[in-house]
Nucleic acid binder design. Structure first.
Lengths: 121, 121
DNA sequence: CAACTAAGATTACACTTGTAATCATTTATA
DNA sequence: TATAAATGATTACAAGTGTAATCTTAGTTG
């Protein structure tokens, strides 16, 4: 539903909403090589898809997400896992055992997460 | 590069290659509601993209993948993680701590994987 | 041998996506 | 006040995708 390009816009809105087009544009002009018009197109598509909304501020819009990042991430994760790894989280994680070299810190984080998972049982 | 629909075809080829179109079709007619022509289109697109190949067997083709599943999974994983979770595996995994209820077995698998990760350090 | 089938190849067509440019309108400015 | 500038809206256009149908050709069958 959210395309890859649109997602980059969403990340900004998730971080700092409500947010003017100008702000989004200036952030994305740094981190990408999109033109202003391109970025505005993406905002508009997100609007039409009902994924974000806006309130007027003078003659400009202040945009805000209508779905939470976590909710979206959760759905995206489930889709990804079921599509690529037959739904098996461990199969996915073990991909990274093969030389993808996680940092010690990431591994520590992971262990913590696993422990939480156990406690929830 | 591999679309979602094409991926479903790939899964069959990864499991049982070389594989005739007829076999792929009959498997997918069960698990999806695609028509035969649709499935053949997908095979053809994969061929044109250079993702699979074939050898002739009489007048039919026997298809085989040209990339390994693991290689593809690895790439897809990296893309997914960096796009949706800023590259952080633990952020992804912790999604599942929130009520996505993994089976005890999955958690056990995960722990094993983590242990391996540690040993690789 | 003529007609039918079945395989792959080619064509179809609407929708999405990437990537903008132009249009219309409103506000700021000379 | 006429014009320039900036906003969002609309339009553009090629490539990729989902989802098939038609075409071509070579075997199969009556």
């Amino acid at each position: 539903m959210i395309s890859e390009s649109e997602f980059k816009v969403m990340r900004i809105l998730w971080q700092q909403a409500p947010c003017s087009a100008k702000t989004v544009v200036s952030e994305l002009e740094d981190s990408s090589d999109w033109k202003e018009k391109t970025i505005k197109t993406l905002l508009n598509r997100l609007l039409n898809k009902g994924i974000i909304t806006y309130e007027k501020n003078g003659r400009e819009y202040l945009y805000s997400p209508l779905i939470e990042q976590e909710q979206y991430q959760k759905e995206a994760s489930k889709n990804f896992l079921s599509q690529v790894f037959d739904g098996k989280l461990s199969a996915f994680v073990s991909q990274f055992a093969k030389k993808e070299t996680l940092s010690t810190d990431e591994i520590k984080q992971l262990k913590k997460v696993i422990k939480e998972l156990e406690n929830d049982q």
